[in-house]
Design a binder for these strands. Structure first.
Lengths: 191, 191, 191, 191
DNA sequence: TATGAATGAGACTTCATTCAT
DNA sequence: TATGAATGAAGTCTCATTCAT
C-alpha cells in the first residue's frame, strides 16, 4: 500500500504544512503539531521516524503541490510565449501567497541536508517546464543553453520580483507585470 | 553614542556572523555565542534586547558586507556591459561561497518578521546598482522599467543559477557563465 | 486452567527471557516484546496484568531454569566432594554466561519489590543443594550450621568469583578454579 | 580545583545517592532529582554531561563511602583473625542497611558499561583488604591464592549471607554470625 | 559595566496501557 | 480471543534570559 493512504498520515502532513506556513519552521513543535492535527503527540511517531523525516516528507508534499500550481494550465497555451506567460504568472501569483513565503523556507532549510533522498527529483516534478524549454530550443527560438541556465535567466525573475514586492512593498500594476514577462522573455530567445 | 561604537558590541556581532555562517541560524545559542565572542552570556544583553534584535542587527551587518562584496570594482568597468558583468560575477562568486548559503538564511528568516525596521533600505545600500540601472535607462540602452523589475529580470539570474548549482550540483563552466550573463543582459536592454 | 498451559503465554515468557538476556531490563519494551513473541501488544495484557507481573513471572521461569542448570548432573557424583564440585562448577560456568549477567539483574531488580509472592521458595527449587548440605551434616562431614550459612560460605564463592572475573577481567586458569573449590570446601567441612 | 569542591555538585551527588537508595536506579528521574537536590533541572547539566555520567560519578562516590565503611577500624585489630572479623562484620552490617541494597544496584548497573573509566580501581579503594590478604599470605597463614580468589571464598560470604537474610528473611543470631565468620575463615587459611 | 551560575519552560521522543474492531 | 493504532504522561536534555556579585 502506498505511503500516502493513511488518514492520520495525511492529517499530520497537512497540519505540518499549515503550521510551517504560519510560524515558519522554527515555530513548529511536535506538541503544537499534534494539537493542530487532532492526534496525540505519540501518534506522529507511528507515521514518521522523527521530526526530520516528517519535514523531509512535508517538503516533498509541498514540492508536489507547488509543481501542480506552477504548471497548471500550461497545456492551454498554444504558442511558446503563451505557455511561458502562463507559467510566469502562475509563479507570480503563487509567490505572492503567504504560504509561498514559508513553504519556500521548507525548501531552503531542507534541501541541502539530504541530497540523495528517496524522492523524485525536481526535473521530474517540473517536467512541463523542462518540456517547454526543450521545445523552444528545438524550434530554434530559445538560446541553446542548459535548462538550468534558461530557467535562471527567465522564469526565476518571477519569484524574484514577487520577493521584492513582498519585502520592499513597492507597488506593481498589471502593465509592469506584462513588461517583466516580456523582458525576461528576451533573455530566453535568440535575437 | 552611536549604536556601532562599542568594542564588545562589534565582538558580539562578528561572532554572530561567524557562527551563523558555520552552523546556520538553528545552531546559534547564546552560550556558544558568548564563548565565541569572548564575553559573558549576560553581557550580550547589555547591547541587545534579546536574540531577535541581535539577529536583526546582524542581518543588517551582513547586508552591508554583502553590498560591499557585490558592488566591489564596479567603477573599474568602462562600459555598462562591463559594469553589469562585474556585478553579475560578484554575485555569482559570493553566492557560491559557503558563507553565503547561511547568511542568506539570516535574510530569509528575518526579513518577513519586522518589515518596517529602522535600518537603511536596500536602495541606499545597493546604490551603485541603482546608479547603473539609472544610467542605462538614461542612455536609452536599458528598458524603461522600475529598477526592481530590471534587477529581477537580469541580476537575480546570478543568484538563482548559483542556487541551482549548489542544490542540484550540476556542473557549470566558464563558457556557460558568459552565456548566462549575455542572456540575462538581453532581458535588460532594448532590442 | 493452569497458569502455564497456554501457547501464547509461553511464547511471551520465552521472548521476555530472550530480550532481557540481550538488552537488559531497561531495553525491554512491550512493543519489542510483542514483536519478538509474534503477538500483538494488547495480547500480552490478556495473560499478564502488567509489565511488573510479567517480569515477576519471568523471574520465576529463570529461577527454575537456573536451578536446573546449576543442579545438573549432581546425582552423578559419588562422594560429597564430587557433588559439591559439580555444583560449584555448574554455577561457575553459568555465571560466566552472558545470559547469566542479565538474568541476574532480573533477580536483583525484582526480588526486593514483592517479597511474599506466590511462587515456590528457593528451598524447593534448589532442593538438591539442600539435600547435599543435609547429607554432609548428617555424615558429620559438614559443619552443623543452617544451610543458608553453609551456602554463603561455600557455594556462593563461585558466583562471587565469576562476578569479579567478569567485571575486573582478571584471568583465571583451571588450576585456580580447583584451588577455589578446595578453599571453599574448607569452609564447609569440620577440621 | 578538584572536581568535588562545588556546593551544588555535592548537593546533586548526595541527592542522587539518596534517591537511588530509595527507588532504585529506574526510579531516578532528573526532574525528581532536581527537586530533591533543591536545584533546577538545568543546573544538573552544568555539573554533569548527562545522566549516565552523573550515575558513573555517583557510583564512584558510593564506592568510596562503602570502602570507608567496610574498612573502618581494621587497624584496631591486632591479629589477622581480628582484622578479618572486623571487615566481615562491617560488610555484614552495611549489607543489611537499606541503602546497601540499592547502592549495590548502582554497582551492578554501571560497572559493566565503562570499564576503562577515569576513576580509581577497586584495588586502590579497598587497599586495606588487599593488605590484609597479602599479610596473611606472607605470614604463611593464608592460602597462596590470588586476592580475588581469597576474597571470593571468604569475605564474600558476608554479603551473600546478608542477601539471603534480607530476601528470605530467615533469622540470624549472633552465634550464627560468629560461626559464619569462623567457617569462612577456614576457607582462607592453610590447614 | 561585566560576569556566569542558575533558572525553568519547553523541545523531542518513548512506551506502558487501552479499546474499538 | 486477538489485534495494533492511538494515547498522553513522563522522560532527558537545551537554551534564552535573569540577577546577585
Amino acid at each position: 500500500m502506498s505511503a500516502e493512504c493513511s488518514d492520520k498520515r495525511k492529517l499530520i502532513l497537512n497540519a505540518t504544512e499549515k503550521l510551517v506556513a504560519e510560524d515558519g519552521i522554527h515555530g513548529l513543535s511536535m506538541q503544537k503539531l499534534a494539537k493542530e492535527a487532532g492526534v496525540a503527540a505519540g501518534t506522529i511517531y507511528r507515521y514518521f521516524d522523527d521530526k526530520e523525516h516528517l519535514l523531509e516528507e512535508t517538503r516533498y508534499h509541498v514540492s508536489q503541490r507547488t509543481a501542480d500550481i506552477i504548471q497548471a494550465g500550461v497545456d492551454d497555451g498554444t504558442t511558446l510565449k503563451e505557455k511561458y506567460s502562463i507559467i510566469w504568472l502562475n509563479i507570480w501569483h503563487f509567490a505572492n501567497t503567504k504560504d509561498a513565503v514559508k513553504s519556500h523556507m521548507l525548501f531552503e532549510q531542507l534541501s541541502s541536508k539530504e541530497e540523495g533522498c528517496h524522492f523524485p527529483k525536481k526535473k521530474e516534478i517540473f517536467y512541463k517546464i523542462e518540456q517547454m524549454f526543450d521545445e523552444g530550443k528545438s524550434q530554434g527560438i530559445f538560446k541553446l543553453l542548459d535548462n538550468n541556465v534558461l530557467s535562471s535567466v527567465s522564469l526565476e525573475s518571477s519569484a524574484a520580483l514577487a520577493r521584492k514586492h513582498r519585502n520592499n512593498g513597492f507597488p506593481i500594476n498589471d502593465e509592469a507585470i506584462t513588461q517583466a514577462i516580456d523582458a525576461s522573455w528576451d533573455a530566453l530567445i535568440n535575437h
